[in-house]
Amino acid sequence: MTDTRTISVTVNGSRHDLEIETRLTLADFLRHQISLTGTHVGCEHGVCGACTVLVDGQAVRSCLMLAVQADGAMVTTVESMTGENEQLHPLQQAFHDNHGLQCGFCTPGILMTLLEFLQHNPSPNETEVREALSGSLCRCTGYQKIVAAALDAASRLRQDVGKTAGRRES
């Protein structure tokens, strides 16, 4: 018995129309069907947060969603973060500068989580950052540098917003 469906999902701005098995998770769809291996899978049962992606702008665990449930949705993965010429997103740059990763396995999930979090809360304090990070497990860093990177990223992103606002005014 193979239950299949044709779905249409927009991932990082490109549309994919594909026939898939309905029991395929969104994480496996991203990694195996469209070869975006930036999204990592650690536990595959909703504990580690490594597989976090944005679905219609909201951070979700892609191992806890079926690909068929994303039919018609916009999915954003870590691959979308770098700009032209491989320029890092300010959030990525902050992780680089603060040594916010070691092996990097947890990083994509953390970046996607923070991307949504910093949108809702552009000036978080340390407690709020730790709360936002509570859904992600990191076996390497001890979290200290991840927290520092997140706070640094928040201030960089605020400056960026300031700059664009200033430009618009002039």
């Binding site: 018995m1 239950d3 469906r5 309905t22 029991r23 395929l24 998770t25 191992c63 079926l66 068929v68």
Partner: peptide, 11 residues
């Protein structure tokens, strides 16, 4: 594939 096979319905 992790989940077992099933028929999927989305009413």
């Amino acid at each position: 594939m992790k989940p077992p096979p099933f028929h999927y319905h989305d009413p």
